[in-house]
Each structure stands twice: as structure tokens, then as C-alpha cells.
Amino acid sequence: MTEGEATTNGQKTEAAESQDTEMKIIRQVEYYFGDYNLPRDKFLQEEIKNDDGWITLETMIKFKRLAALSTDISVILAALKKSTSGIIEVHENNEKIRRSASHPLPIFNDELKEETMKRTIYCKGFAKDGSVKLDDLLEYFKQYGPYETVLMRHYFDKESKKQGFKGSVLVVFPTVEKAKEFKELDDVKYKNTYLLRKWHEDYVEEKKKEIEERKARKEARKKKEEKEDNENKEEEAAEIEIPKGTFLYFSGLKEGSEAAREDIKESLGEFADQCAWIDFSRGMTKGYIRFKEEDFNKQVMEKLEGKLKVKDMDAELRLVDGEEEEEQLKKMKEARSRARNNAGKKRKSGRGGHFPNKKRKC
């Protein structure tokens, strides 16, 4: 290869790069002033009110994506003058541009939003690792064009305080027919990954339904928790009215015996069904029995003549009253409160638990 050939080849490469840059400048500026963006761009909407729609190129080169292509006003002007769409009009002083009066701007209202949605396709399946750039997508969708715009869908990560790509885009086509052509293609792949395609309208309805179902489940959980809280409050209120004269104290069992609460209850015979609580653990020599009805302890005491036969052991009974009775009522309420709290924690966490040496009802 001669030096002349290398120079010629170099010039061809530079010319191709220059042409590519010009096409990107045209595409970007026409996007800014296009049917999709301009009606929605609050900044540009305010700017075009000031000078009969004209905006200086000094202002335009402050836009990031245009500035990334070139900040040389002469380069931008040269590119725009080669545009064949007729959307952009260059002022005679070569210092400002505007959307051509021959292309009336759509009125941004609910009708426009609805009409735009009907020609928009939702596409999912792009990598979320940051490797996909907007320029890549704009170039990729050319084969299915023309299109008005490609919108990357982002989310905000609260922890990193950065935006992330959801892996999905919205492609706005100029007509419903063009959108339908793309939607009805058999297979659409991006770098060997098949893309999921839906009408944007259908996607929005699906998400709306998911949100409503999620909200309904949340409301159901809330109502269930409120019901359980109310039931607990009712139980607490009922406990305030717990009758007195319901406790018996027993003692005299052998230390370390195998007697259990079930054995204590069985020894009550005909009164077992009236047993509400037994405060006793295996191996102990004494404990407390609570009955359901007021002054029932006296009936049991009289009937059993102050004796309780537990397995092969004779236990002594006595009535519980005064400060001792108040203390037992307090212990019983605290035990019930702990049981309710533990049950509430299990409901909320979805996990069970084990509570050693827990007193229980008969």
C-alpha cells in the first residue's frame, strides 16, 4: 500500500465518520423538535414563547446528547441544512433554529396521550447491567422503523441513589399500522435474546391490575390484623371482669415427681371441666388451680374436703383470697398478654416459635 492510498483510505474513513455524525445531529435535533418530545418538553415550550419559536444554537448545545455529538455551531448548522424532513428551519443569521411552520405542533392533551399510546410497543429482554445504551437502541430499531422515539425505562435505586435500566423500552411508531407490523413479527431478537413485545396499552392495564390485586391483598391483611387486634382488645376487656373466688392452692406433692398438669386436672374429677388454668410444672411440689366461675373454689374445696389425690400422692388444698388472689390474677393477665404478643409476632413474621416452661390452659 502506497502512502497515497493510505491517505485516500483515511479520507474515506473520516468522510464516513463525518457523515455518521451529521446523521446523528439531525436525528437528535429533530427529536428535540419532534411530535413526541416538543409538546412534552417544558423547557423548550417556555423557550419557544420568547422569540416566535426561535431558539439559539448557543442554547441548543447545552443539551447533553447534542453536546456529546458536537458543540461546534458551524458543524451543527451544516448538518441541519442537509436534512430533508423539513421539520427544522434555520434562521437567516445562522444563529438560531425553530420547528418549521409547515409542521404544526400537536396539542399536548389527553387525546394526544391516548393516540400516542395506541402506536407504542412495550419491549422487554434487554440486559440490565448498563451495557445497553440509548444510541445502541436507536440504531437497533432502525431496521423496524421509521419510529418517533425509543424510551428506555428506568428505576431509582434508593440505596445507591442512582438510576438503573429496567431492561425494557417503549418504541413509539409514527402510525398504528407500523406499530402493528412490528408487534406481529414472528421473532424479534436483540443480541440472541428474544424480546417480549406487548401493546403499551395492554401492558399498562396489566400493571394496573397487578397494583389493584396487591392493594386488595394488603387491605385484606390489614382488615385481618384489625380484626385480631379487636378480638385481643375484647379479650383484655373481658379479663378485667374476671370473677374472684376461682383459685385453689395445692401443696404436698413429692419433689421431682412425674406428675403433670394433666394429672392435676384428672384428679379434680367432676370439676375438671370447670378448670380454666393450672400454674404448675413437672417436678414441682405445689401450684395453683383456677376455675371459670365465681366462688367455684369454695364448692370444690367443700366437695373434696380439702384433699387432692394426684397419682399416688395426697395434696392439701386451701382457698386463695386477698393479696394472694390479686397476685395470681396479675400473673394470669401477664401470661395471656405475652401469649397474644407472641401469636401476633408469629402472624407477622410467618414463623413459628418455641417457648419453654410456658404455662397453659387446661
Rank of each mutant, 00 (worst) to 15 (best):
E3H: 14
E5S: 05
N9R: 08
N9D: 13
Q11R: 10
T13E: 13
A15N: 08
S18L: 10
Q19N: 15
T21W: 11
L38Q: 00
L44W: 02
E46F: 14
E47W: 05
G53S: 01
W54L: 04
T56A: 11
F63Y: 12
K64I: 04
L66K: 00
L66F: 06
K82T: 06
T84R: 01
V90Y: 10
R99E: 04
S100T: 11
F108D: 08
K118M: 01
K124G: 08
K133Q: 11
F141D: 01
M152E: 05
R153K: 15
K158S: 03
E159A: 04
Q163L: 10
V169W: 01
F173P: 00
F173K: 01
P174Y: 06
T175L: 13
E177R: 00
A179Q: 02
A179I: 05
K183M: 14
L185A: 06
K191T: 05
L195I: 09
L196D: 10
R197P: 11
W199S: 08
Y203I: 07
K218F: 04
A220F: 09
E226H: 06
N230S: 11
E231L: 07
N232R: 13
I240W: 09
F250A: 06
G256F: 07
A259R: 03
E266T: 14
E270C: 07
Q274T: 05
F280P: 02
M284E: 11
Y288C: 01
R290F: 01
E293K: 13
N297A: 14
K298W: 15
M301T: 08
L304N: 03
G306M: 13
K309C: 10
D312N: 14
V320R: 04
D321L: 14
E324M: 11
E327F: 11
L329P: 00
K333T: 02
K333S: 10
N357Q: 09
K358W: 13
